[in-house]
Design a protein around this nucleic acid. Structure first.
Lengths: 207, 207
DNA sequence: CATTAATGTCAGTCACCACTGACAGACACT
DNA sequence: AGTGTCTGTCAGTGGTGACTGACATTAATG
C-alpha cells in the first residue's frame, strides 16, 4: 500500500499548492486542503504533522538553476538571436510551470528558515550563465561594446517583469501576448548589441 | 479635536499598511495594528468598523496614472535618452513610494470589489502614454522602425521587473543598483531605436 | 485468519481573533 | 459648569481553526 500512501501525500501537496497560491497560507484551512484533496483532515496531519510542514514540503519543489545550466551547456549555438530566444522561452516555461509556487513565495506569509536564500540563488545563477555567455560572445567578436553583467541583468529583468505581469495581470494589456513580448525584447537586444562597428565612446565616458 | 481624530485614523492606516504589507492581511491582528499605532483596538473599530474596511481605506491611496500624465505633458523634451531616463526615474519613484501598498495588492488575500481593476488601469495608461510618445518621436523622425506598442510594452516590463526584483530580493545581485539598471536599460533602448538609418527589413520580414 | 498499514469518523481541546457593550477619563468649546 | 468628542479599559461573545485521541473500517499480505 505504499503507492496509495504516496498518492495521498501527493494529492495533499497539490491541493495545498493550489489553494495557498490563490488565497495565501492563512487564507486557507487544513480542512479545505484536505477535502480539496478528497481526504480527511486527519490524514493530512498524519502525513505532515502540521500545516507549516505541509507547506515546507511543497516548497521544496522549486528549483530551476540546474535546468538552465543544461540549456547553456547543450543548446547554445552562438547565434545571438537564436540563443536569446531559446533562453527566454526556457525561462518562461520553467517559471510558468512553477507559477503557483512562485505566488506562494511572493505572498511569503510564513517564515521558513533558509527558504528565501535558496530561492534567490536560482536567478543569481542564471545571471552568471548569461553574463558568461555575453562575455564569450564578445570574445568571439559577435557582439559589441559590452558591460556584460549589466546587460545580462537588464535582459533578465525584462523577462522577470513580463512573467510577473502575466502572473498577476494576465491579459491586462489587450492583444499583447507573452510570446510577442519575447520576440520584441530579443529583437531589441539583438539590435542593441550587434552594432555594425559603431564605436561606443559614449559608454566609455559614462563609466 | 478634529485634528486628533484624523491623526488617529492616519496612524492606524499607516500601521495597517506597514504590518499587512509584511505579513499579509490574515497574518496580522487588529490588536497588533492598534498597538503598533499606539492606540487601542477599540479605537480602530470605532474609526473603521471592520478590519476589511480599514484595509480598503488604506488601499484607496494607490494611484499614479495622473502623475504620469503630468510628466508626459510637461517634462518631455523630445530627446530620447533624456526622456526615457526621466520616465524611468519617475516610475520608480512612484512605485517605491507605494511599495507597501503594492506588496499588499500582490498578496491579494482579501477580495475587494473593483480594486484589482482600478489597480491594473494605471499601468495600462502608462502604456498608452509611452506608445503615443514613441509614435510622436517616430513622426518627428527621431527614432526608427517602430512597433510602438510592443516597444513601449517591453520598456515597461523591464522597469516592472527591476522594481519587483528590488521589492522582494533587495540587493540579491551584489553590486547592481536600481540606478545602474535604469541607465543601462535606457542605453539599450536608445541604441536599439536610434539606428543610424540602417534599414529594418529584418523586422518587416518577421511580421 | 491474523496482522499491518492507510484511512475515516467523531468528538473534543485550546488558543486566537474579530468585534461589542458598558463605563470612565481627558480635553475642548460654549 | 455643562456638553460633546475622542479615547481608553475591561470583560466579554461567538466563531474558527490547528491539532489530538479513541475507535472503526478497508484492503493487502503472509
Amino acid at each position: 500500500m505504499r503507492q496509495i500512501k504516496q498518492g495521498s501525500a501527493e494529492k495533499l501537496l497539490r491541493a495545498a499548492i493550489d489553494l495557498i497560491s490563490e488565497r495565501g497560507y492563512h487564507g486557507v484551512t487544513t480542512q479545505e486542503i484536505a477535502s480539496s484533496a478528497e481526504l480527511s483532515e486527519k490524514t493530512l496531519f498524519r502525513h505532515f504533522g502540521s500545516k507549516q510542514n505541509l507547506l515546507e514540503t511543497a516548497l521544496e519543489r522549486f528549483q530551476y538553476a540546474e535546468e538552465m545550466r543544461v540549456l547553456f551547456d547543450e543548446q547554445i549555438v552562438w547565434e545571438l538571436e537564436i540563443d536569446l530566444l531559446a533562453i527566454s522561452k526556457k525561462y518562461h516555461a520553467i517559471m510558468n510551470r512553477d507559477r503557483k509556487l512562485i505566488m506562494i513565495a511572493l505572498k511569503d506569509e510564513v517564515h521558513i528558515p533558509g527558504f528565501k536564500e535558496r530561492r534567490l540563488q536560482h536567478p543569481r545563477q542564471l545571471l552568471t550563465f548569461l553574463t558568461d555567455y555575453f562575455i564569450a560572445m564578445s570574445e568571439k567578436g559577435k557582439i559589441a561594446c559590452p558591460n556584460p553583467i549589466m546587460q545580462a541583468f537588464t535582459f533578465m529583468m525584462a523577462q522577470y517583469g513580463a512573467f510577473m505581469n502575466d502572473l498577476e495581470a494576465g491579459t491586462n494589456y489587450s492583444g499583447i501576448s507573452l510570446d510577442e513580448f519575447i520576440q520584441e525584447n530579443v529583437k531589441i537586444f539583438v539590435r542593441s548589441l550587434t552594432l555594425p562597428a559603431t564605436p561606443c565612446e559614449k559608454e566609455l565616458q559614462t563609466r
